[in-house]
């Protein structure tokens, strides 16, 4: 089995809570010379709980633009640290599904994810289910998943 890493996926939202995860991904990219792709899954399911029932096409676009912005900052950070091959991908939809899908599509060897945030409106993972999801992700995507504390 070839252990060489050519592609690293780093699934984050940006912000201070993902700093460690991003640092880990950049370090790994520098160490292996692999391509680093930041991945941001934009889910808007939380809007449903706030009694927003109307069409949200405009709002989705705004959220995507915001996501691009946070990813641009991460790309800039990686480039400043010396990562040559770095980009980002943003996809709309359920985060679980998007993570599995992107893992399969990109054929990356490693995915770096952070621990769940403490946010009250988070609909992604509970702290306790993170490990089992990481296992599922590794199995479905056929890659190594690193959960950064």
């Amino acid at each position: 089995m070839n252990n060489k890493i050519n592609k690293i996926l780093c699934a984050v939202r940006g912000g201070p809570e993902s700093r460690q995860t991003v640092t880990y991904a950049i370090d790994l990219a520098l160490e292996t010379g692999a391509k680093l792709t930041f991945f941001h899954a934009m889910d808007a399911e939380f809007l449903g709980s706030a009694a927003i029932g109307r069409t949200l096409s405009g709002i989705y676009n705004e959220l995507i633009e915001m996501g691009k912005f946070t990813m641009l900052i991460l790309v800039d950070r990686a480039q400043r640290r010396g990562v040559k091959d770095v980009d980002y991908i943003i996809q709309e939809g359920n985060i679980r599904k998007q993570l599995i899908q992107i893992a399969i599509e990109t054929r990356a060897e490693t995915m770096i994810v952070g621990r769940p945030t403490r946010g009250p409106t988070s609909n992604v993972f509970k702290m306790t289910e993170m490990e089992s999801f990481a296992e599922e992700l590794a199995r479905e995507g056929g890659l190594k998943v690193v959960v950064v504390p």
Binding site: G14, M42, A50, T117, G119, T121
Partner: peptide, 16 residues
């Protein structure tokens, strides 16, 4: 709640 939801998606969660 809406503001907190969007801020969280940018990596800035607002806790209770």
């Amino acid at each position: 709640m809406v503001t907190a939801g969007i801020a969280e998606r940018a990596g800035y969660p607002i806790t209770y």
